[in-house]
């Protein structure tokens, strides 16, 4: 299935065949879906939303409402984003603080017993990804979705490394090139989903894991060999 053809409604139907009540408001949506008989809070965005101060604020408010009104309810983040909104106004208002606030609210939910999963179903880029799905307990992705920091032509312009060189190296190295497969190899994407999404979602929510295991996964999968070792050496090493 092509990314373009999977609209949000289809996604909701496939994730929650038992039923869902999700309300759209512009690029933002929220509501609940039923997964394996259990209510799941759903928060997300559509149309590759640029995440500006209002959207980050709105998502944070929704997380706080779930924590306040529905203790322990699992949360599923379905954020489709091209990254943070690039504008003078967002910087003027301190967009980094709004992103951080969203992350803090998710941490509060995690600490108060809400399982949190992220699913990259269309695209996830940089700052918008950092403060949302990438901050879940575990993040999954559809096989046809895209995760990136920057496309290779732009990367080539800025780093002044020839594009052919980047393209060549990206065939073997997952370290810089866009792609959900690369993020899986590096441990940030727990698993790639296709087929029966409802079954995948229920299975994912059947385990609750709050420790950050991404470095270990990255090492196991051979995509990120240094992070685990270096962090452990700093954590436990004699100064």
């Amino acid at each position: 299935m092509d990314t373009q053809t999977l609209d949000a409604e289809t996604l909701f139907d496939r994730l929650f065949p038992e039923g869902h009540a999700i309300t759209r408001d512009g690029l933002f949506f929220s509501g609940t879906g039923t997964s394996a008989g259990r209510s799941v809070a759903v928060i997300g965005s559509v149309d590759a939303a640029p995440i500006g101060v209002e959207l980050a604020f709105r998502m944070a408010g929704e997380v706080l409402a779930v924590v306040r009104d529905h203790p322990g309810r699992p949360i599923l983040l379905l954020v489709d984003t091209q990254g943070q909104r690039l504008s003078h106004r967002d910087e003027l208002l301190g967009i980094n603080g709004y992103m951080a606030h969203l992350a803090k609210c998710l941490a509060l939910a995690r600490n108060t017993g809400h399982p949190i999963l992220g699913l990259v179903w269309s695209q996830a880029v940089s700052g918008g990804f950092l403060a949302s799905s990438l901050f879940a307990d575990r993040c999954f992705a559809l096989k046809e979705a895209e995760v990136r920091v920057m496309n290779l032509p732009a990367m080539s312009r800025i780093t002044k490394i020839p594009l052919e060189r980047l393209e060549d190296l990206s065939k073997t190295s997952p370290v810089f090139a866009p792609g959900v497969e690369n993020y899986w190899r590096m441990g940030a994407i727990e698993a790639l989903w296709s087929g029966n999404l409802a079954r995948e979602l229920a299975a994912a929510f059947s385990t609750h894991e709050t420790a950050d295991r991404r470095r270990a996964r990255g090492a196991e999968r051979g995509g990120r060999r240094l992070a685990l070792d270096v962090a452990e050496r700093v954590r436990h090493g004699a100064p």
Binding site: A103, K104, A107, N111, S126, F129, L130, L134, F135, R148, V149, M150, M155, I158, T159, I161, P174, V175, F176, A177, N182, Y183, M186, G187, A188, D212, R214, R215, G218, R224, A227, A231
Partner: peptide, 26 residues
């Protein structure tokens, strides 16, 4: 921010730093 030469590793690393800061403050 993230070092473009190793953009994916950098982005994930920032996420790990974020988790670690909040775990520590917690």
């Amino acid at each position: 921010g993230v070092r473009l030469h190793e953009a994916n590793a950098g982005l994930i690393a920032v996420s790990e730093i974020m988790r670690a800061v909040l775990a520590l403050r917690g």
